[in-house]
Design a protein around this nucleic acid. Structure first.
Length: 658
DNA sequence: CCGGGGTTGT
DNA sequence: ACAACCC
C-alpha cells in the first residue's frame, strides 16, 4: 500500500519568502493513514521537523507570572542557573552558569527555583500532545524538544494542492540560496503552522528546523535563535556539517566519544569524514563506527520513533551531605511520597523499583552513581495504582532500605550527595503484551482489574484539544490519499519576527581547504589521500559558494529571504551537483563535491545507496532504475517500536489538559 | 562540572 | 548494573 511514494519529480517551482511567521493551523485532524507506519522503513526523502522551545523553563515561569517577562530571570536548580530568559541573556548570562557567576554578571537577576519539574513536565507534554494532534509521529527529546516526521502530511498536501503558492519557503532558508524543493517548502509551512498553534494555544514560542533527517533538522533548528525557523536545502547539507566547530557538536557524539576520536587524531568533522571506516571500526566496533561516519556526513536514517508515555518515572534530589541512616530514610520517604503520587496519576503499575545513590569522593571521581533494583511485589504495586499511597510508601521504603544496604554498609561512615528513586517496567491495564508469554494478561488468576479501568480500549478522553492524539482510530486511510488536512490559510497577523543579529558568524572556515596544523596530525595515508589528484581537483578552492545573484526569472516571486548574514559555505564538504550514479570503482564515476571515492567505497552498499540518494535528492531526470534492493540489510535499528502494546491508554494521561 | 530529569546500548 | 547519550 502506498508506501514510499517517493519520487515526485520536483520540477521547478518558485518560491518567495515571507517573513510572516505565522499562519493558522487548521482544524483538523490527526493524520494517519495506516496506523503506525513510520513513513517507510527509510523513506527516500522524508521531511523531518525539529522543534526546540525557547528557554523553556523560563517561559513556563513567565506564563505563571507575567511580571517576570520584564526582568532578567534565571531558573535555579541548586547552585546552577539552568536556563534564563532573553532579558537575562542580553546581560551575558548563559545556560548552566553558576549562581555566583550569574549574580556577578547581572546583580538584578531574579531567580526562581526550578528543582520541582512538575509544571515544566506538564507543559512539556501539552506541547507534545498538540504536535501529536496534527501528526502522530512525534518523538520527544528532553522536555523542550520534539522531532516530528511530517513526510506524509507533506505528501498529502502536495497531491491535494496544486496551488503553487504553497511552494514558498516560510521562515529562513539556510544559506539563502534559492531552490525548488516543494516538499521542504511545504514542510516549512507546516512548521510555521505548528509553531503558531503552540503559541496561540499554549503561549509558548520556539524554533523549528526543517530537513530530511533528524540530525540535520536538529542542527539547522538553532540557526536563527529565538522564535524563528530555518529550512535546510539539500545543497547545504555539507555546509551545515562543515560549520560545526568540533565533533562534540554532533548530536550523538558526547564527551567520551569525542575524546576517543581525538585520540585517533580526529577533531573536526572533515577529519572524521575522511577517516577510513576500517580504522574507525577497530576502535568503536562496526555499527558504531558506521554511525559515527554517517553522522559526520549528515546522514541519519534513524526513524522518528513515537515516544508515547514514559518508560520510567523517577524523582531525585542532590545535597551536600547525607551520612546517617536516619537521614537516608527520611530522604527516601520524601522522594517516594512524591513519586508514588505521580505514579498514581499515571495509572500504570510499576513492576520494578530502583534506588540510586551518588557517594561523595573528594578525588573528583564522583560522577558515578550506583544503583540496585528489585521487583515490586504485586500487592505493593496495586496500592500505588489504587491510591492507597501512604501504605504503598511504607512498603516501598522498606524495599528501598534493603536496596540501600546492599550498596552501603551503614556501620561504616558514608557520605552521599544524591539519591534517586525510580519506577520502571510500567504496566498498563488491559493491554495485551505481545511476545513471550509471561507477563500475565490480567486474566490469569487473580488480579482482576477490579477497579478503575484505566482505560479500557481506547477512546474516551478527548477533552478539549485535539482529541487525543494518539488513539487514533478516527478516520482510516481508505483509499487514495486523503482529504482533509489542514488547508493553509493565509492569515497571519501580528506576527513579528525579530531576527536578532548575532553576528556570530560561522566560526572558522578553512580557506582553501585544510588547516596545515590539522593536516600534519593526520595519519599518513589520509594525507596521501588528501593530496591525491582526484581529491585536490575536486576542491573549488575558495569556494565562491554558490551565492548566485539569483536571477530568478520569475516575475512574481522573489527570493527575499529576509536576511543578511548567512552561514557560509565550507570549502570542503560534500555535495553540490548531482552526479550520476554508478558505482564507485568505475573510472568515470563522478562524486559530488569533494567526496573521496576511496572513502566512499568503504561504505556498505546500502549506505552508499543512501548517500547517493541524498546527493541527488530529487529531480533525477533519468532514473536509472536499478539497483534497488527491496529488503534492507540488517543494519541497524528497528523494532522497538513494536513492543509497546499497552501504552495506548495510559499515555493519555500525559496528553490531557490539566 | 552536573541540575533533575529521560533514553538506549552493553 | 552501568555507561553513554540527550535536554
Amino acid at each position: 500500500m502506498g508506501n514510499s511514494e517517493a519520487e515526485m519529480e520536483e520540477d521547478e517551482t518558485e518560491w518567495r519568502s515571507s517573513f510572516v511567521d505565522s499562519a493558522p493551523l487548521s482544524p483538523a485532524a490527526a493524520s494517519g493513514p495506516s496506523l503506525y507506519k513510520t513513513s517507510g522503513p527509510t523513506s527516500a526523502h522524508r521531511v523531518i521537523l525539529h522543534f526546540d522551545l525557547d528557554c523553556f523553563y523560563a517561559q513556563v515561569e513567565m506564563i505563571r507570572n507575567p511580571a517576570l517577562r520584564e526582568v532578567p530571570l534565571g531558573i535555579q536548580q541548586k547552585y546552577i542557573i539552568v536556563t534564563c530568559n532573553y532579558v537575562a541573556r542580553e546581560q551575558g548570562l548563559t545556560k548552566l552558569m553558576s549562581v555566583t557567576d550569574a549574580k556577578e554578571k547581572c546583580p538584578q537577576l531574579v531567580l526562581v527555583k526550578g528543582e520541582d519539574l512538575t509544571h515544566y513536565r506538564e507543559m512539556s507534554y501539552k506541547v507534545t500532545e498538540l504536535l501529536m494532534s496534527h501528526c502522530p509521529l512525534v518523538e520527544r527529546l528532553g522536555f523542550d524538544e520534539n522531532f516530528i516526521d511530517i513526510t506524509e502530511m507533506v505528501d498529502r498536501r502536495l497531491t491535494q494542492t496544486p496551488d503553487s503558492d504553497n511552494f514558498s519557503v516560510k521562515g529562513h532558508i539556510y544559506s539563502h540560496v534559492t531552490s525548488d524543493y516543494p516538499r521542504l517548502a511545504i514542510g516549512s509551512h507546516i512548521a510555521a503552522e505548528l509553531r503558531e498553534a503552540i503559541h496561540s494555544k499554549l503561549g509558548l514560542t520556539g524554533c523549528a528546523g526543517i530537513a530530511p533527517n533528524k540530525l540535520l533538522a536538529k542542527l539547522v533548528c538553532g540557526t536563527f535563535k529565538p522564535n524563528q525557523q530555518t529550512t535546510l536545502l539539500p545543497q547545504n547539507h555539507g555546509d551545515i556539517m562543515g560549520s560545526l566547530s568540533s565533533l562534540r557538536k554532533v548530536p550523538g557524539v558526547g564527551h567520551q566519544t569525542a575524546k576517543r576520536l581525538q585520540a585517533l587524531g580526529l577533531v573536526s568533522i572533515q577529519n572524521l569524514q575522511l577517516f577510513p571506516l576500517n580504522d574507525l571500526a577497530r576502535e568503536f566496533g562496526g555499527p558504531s563506527a558506521q554511525r559515527l561516519k554517517n553522522l559526520a556526513m549528515g546522514v541519519d536514517d534513524s526513524p522518528v520513533t513515537p515516544t508515547g508515555a514514559p518508560q520510567s518515572l523517577s524523582d531525585e534530589d542532590s545535597f551536600k551531605k547525607i551520612s546517617s541512616a536516619k537521614d537516608v530514610l527520611e530522604k527516601i520517604q520524601q522522594l517516594l511520597s512524591s513519586l508514588v503520587e505521580r505514579m498514581n496519576k499515571d495509572g500504570r503499575q510499576p513492576q520494578t523499583f530502583r534506588l540510586t545513590i551518588r557517594r561523595y569522593s573528594a578525588t573528583n571521581k564522583w560522577f558515578s552513581r550506583e544503583s540496585r533494583q528489585c521487583p515490586i511485589p504485586n500487592h505493593v504495586g496495586q496500592k500505588i495504582t489504587s491510591g492507597d499511597s501512604d501504605d504503598a510508601v511504607v512498603q516501598l521504603v522498606q524495599l528501598a532500605m534493603k536496596l540501600f544496604h546492599k550498596m552501603v554498609d551503614s556501620r561504616a561512615a558514608f557520605h552521599l550527595t544524591l539519591m534517586n528513586v525510580c519506577f520502571s517496567n510500567l504496566q498498563s491495564r488491559g493491554a495485551a503484551v505481545s511476545g513471550k508469554g509471561s507477563i500475565t494478561s490480567f486474566f490469569t488468576h487473580g488480579t482482576s482489574p477490579g477497579k478503575a479501568p484505566i482505560c479500557s480500549s481506547q477512546s474516551q478522553v478527548n477533552a478539549c484539544s485535539a482529541e487525543a492524539a494518539l488513539h487514533g482510530s478516527r478516520r482510516k486511510q481508505s483509499s487514495v490519499v486523503a482529504d482533509e488536512d489542514p488547508p493553509l490559510q493565509s492569515g497571519c497577523s501580528t506576527a513579528r519576527t525579530n531576527p536578532e543579529e548575532t553576528g556570530n558568524t560561522v566560526t572558522r572556515r578553512l580557506p582553501s581547504n585544510f588547516d596545515p596544523d590539522v593536516f600534519e596530525h593526520l595519519p599518513q595515508d589520509i594525507q596521501k589521500e588528501l593530496l591525491s589528484p582526484a581529491y585536490v581537483n575536486s576542491i573549488p578552492s575558495t569556494s565562491i559558494s554558490s551565492l548566485s545573484p539569483t536571477a530568478e526569472l520569475d516575475p512574481s516571486y522573489r527570493v527575499a529571504t529576509a536576511n543578511h548574514h548567512r552561514p557560509v559555505v565550507p570549502s570542503a564538504s560534500l555535495l553540490a551537483e548531482e552526479g550520476r550514479l554508478s558505482l564507485p570503482r568505475s573510472p568515470d564515476c563522478k562524486f559530488p563535491g569533494n567526496v573521496d571515492p576511496e572513502v566512499f567505497s568503504e561504505l556498505p552498499p546500502d549506505v552508499q545507496k543512501e548517500l547517493m540518494s541524498e546527493w541527488k535528492q530529487q529531480k533525477s531526470v533519468l532514473k536509472t532504475s536499478s539497483s534497488m534492493k527491496p529488503g534492507r540489510s540488517l543494519m541497524t535499528k528497528d523494532r522497538k517500536a513494536a513492543g509497546k502494546g499497552g501504552q495506548t491508554n495510559s499515555l493519555l494521561k500525559y496528553f490531557k489538559p490539566s
